[in-house]
Design a protein around this nucleic acid. Structure first.
Lengths: 197, 197, 197, 197
DNA sequence: GATGAATGAGTATTCATTCAT
DNA sequence: AATGAATGAATACTCATTCAT
């Protein structure tokens, strides 16, 4: 059912897509430098040479994948979010969105986590990725103006309210811990308690 | 003036030490797989062949370095800590110790952070590294029994009170943020607020 | 404005021509093996696949280009030459023609020079190219019969009277030397002095 | 007789030497870009990786080989030459030396010829190679001052008296022509006739 | 005829590891 | 213990060639 239809249904761009998916998966399992291009090609059912039709080189490949996943992440994070919401409600919305992403879209989330904690990413792409958080930063600023949020750097707010979710995801991924809806609700409370005034 | 004194001042085992230091530094800058053994040897002023007198292979090298740094970390974390201290005081002590480590011993801290967020470490070594946190887990258990600490998994407590420090360190390391004593005090409050009942 | 006119002005066969021109230019700059087919196609504003409509493969491509340029060369060399001319006059005519070719049609001349000094050409094509010099060899034979030209192999006559022009062209091409009409006249004298009796 | 003694007699530097010889031979037969490093290694009976112990990369390899062969060439060219000799005698000496080199040390000579007529060499190395001809240029200058040599650029003198030898070598190498001592003497006369006043 | 996406064999180069000294 | 020259398997990337459209 795959080979026979490949030429037809899998139109333009499908190979690029397959490569992106393969990259995420393999980098998650082995890390960037331990993942050969040939393996990526094989998993994507594509010739090694084909990679270079869509990406300039290995670095460009993860750069592009990173941007793409980061974009998907923020789309997810701000889904149904409205900047006119009250601060507490807005934060709750975003926080639950991010938690949902990290715990459902595990592959993507793990990939981002590795990119963000490793020297494999080059600085320009990292900067590019940061931009996407703008609405959250704006929300926090508003919250601080309204005396609802602690008067500390957004880095600090992020560290204590968002970053912990990544840890929980990692731990669950390694099979050490299983996160239920109740856990998530607890986690939200802890996040909010740490940043609220 | 270098060669002639090397043999004297740098007794037996000094080469191992130099290799460990070199590994930490280079892995921080480039990642595990992007760091060649030859570079490690060069920075340690040692022949490539010598590495294999002290370590079985590359994987064994980072494994050993990881354990070593993790041990140093916990020694630091529990310095002057006494299990008979009241919970709040005990936590404060440990938390400030860990923060001091992360912000002063940056090289070691960054190395651990990379090990913990990357597939470069094998599972046994990872497990080995976890053991060192025992006293903190005990403290939390006691705190929960005394109704001082939230009734959630230690993973959750760790995620919201300890893990954020690593983020702050990363951000400072990248030159995006400078952490003062005042920031640390704020951070402590946020950490405590998130886990206290 | 490019695509719509291509089909009109550049009738059939124009693509082949463009490919030949592109090949000459690129091989001059980088050598045969350092010139990818894709680059040739790009410079000729043609698809890579199109090359194989006109040429069997890469080797066939330079073979054909070589023959073509060699043919153009001899047409140039024997322009206005008449086998009934006196030997000295006939040689002068041919020599100046060749000099003019080498110094005016630099692209073609450099291409030939590279083909003749490199293992990139296969022997059959090389032989094919040699045939074109027949009239010059005949002239020399006549000159020897008339005791005007040294009794040595035509290879020797060629080496000392014709081959040097290629060197001058190379040197001028590299910007080390500029050749004026006066230089050419001197060169002719030197050529003639070396072969005359 | 080779394998059994390899480890002993073939001390330091022997591998480099073998690589240089292999490079000359293979580049002569196939050209620079058509010669894979692996083939060079195999012919030199050395591992591919070993090449990079002695040479930075492929370009550095031919650069070094070129300089080395060019140096051997000029040592040969000016053997027994004494700047105090009369011009005609000095030129005869050098010319015969060069002819001897080109016709005896065919491998080296062919290698130089290919380097000098191909874009494979980078400009710095080419310049470096040129320096070696100094004594010949000095001799020509003196000859011009003494009204013995034509008042033309040394490029022209070289083109007509030295460069032709390379052509004869090529032709002989291809099996089209066999050069005897008598031919050489003729050639010398032709060379001298072209540059003398 | 013409295209250009796709291929996969081939290439330069790197690097963990060994071993004779 | 220590060295470092040597290895060769592995890797990123290129490019001649094909073929479905």
């Amino acid at each position: 059912m795959r080979n026979d239809t490949k030429g037809k249904e899998a139109k333009a761009g499908s190979k690029r897509e397959a490569l992106v998916r393969a990259t995420i998966q393999l980098v998650n399992n082995s890390g960037f430098h331990a993942t050969p291009m040939s393996k990526i090609a094989k998993l994507a059912e594509v010739s090694p040479g084909t990679i270079y039709l869509y990406f300039e080189n290995k670095q460009d490949l993860i750069n592009q994948v990173y941007i793409e996943v980061k974009t998907a992440f923020s789309a997810f994070a701000f889904k149904d979010y409205d900047a006119s919401l009250p601060v507490a409600e807005g934060f709750r919305k975003i926080w639950y969105n991010i938690a949902a992403f990290k715990l459902q879209e595990v592959e993507e989330a793990m990939f981002l986590s590795q990119c963000d904690n490793t020297p494999m990413m080059d600085e320009p792409s990292r900067q590019e990725g940061l931009k996407h958080l703008r609405p959250l930063l704006d929300l926090w600023e508003r919250g601080q103006a309204e005396q609802l949020i602690r008067q500390v750097s957004p880095f600090m707010l992020y560290a204590f309210s968002i970053y912990p979710i990544a840890f929980l995801m990692n731990v669950q991924q390694r099979g050490l811990y299983t996160i239920t809806q109740e856990h998530i609700d607890h986690a939200y409370t802890m996040a909010w308690n740490s940043i609220k005034l």
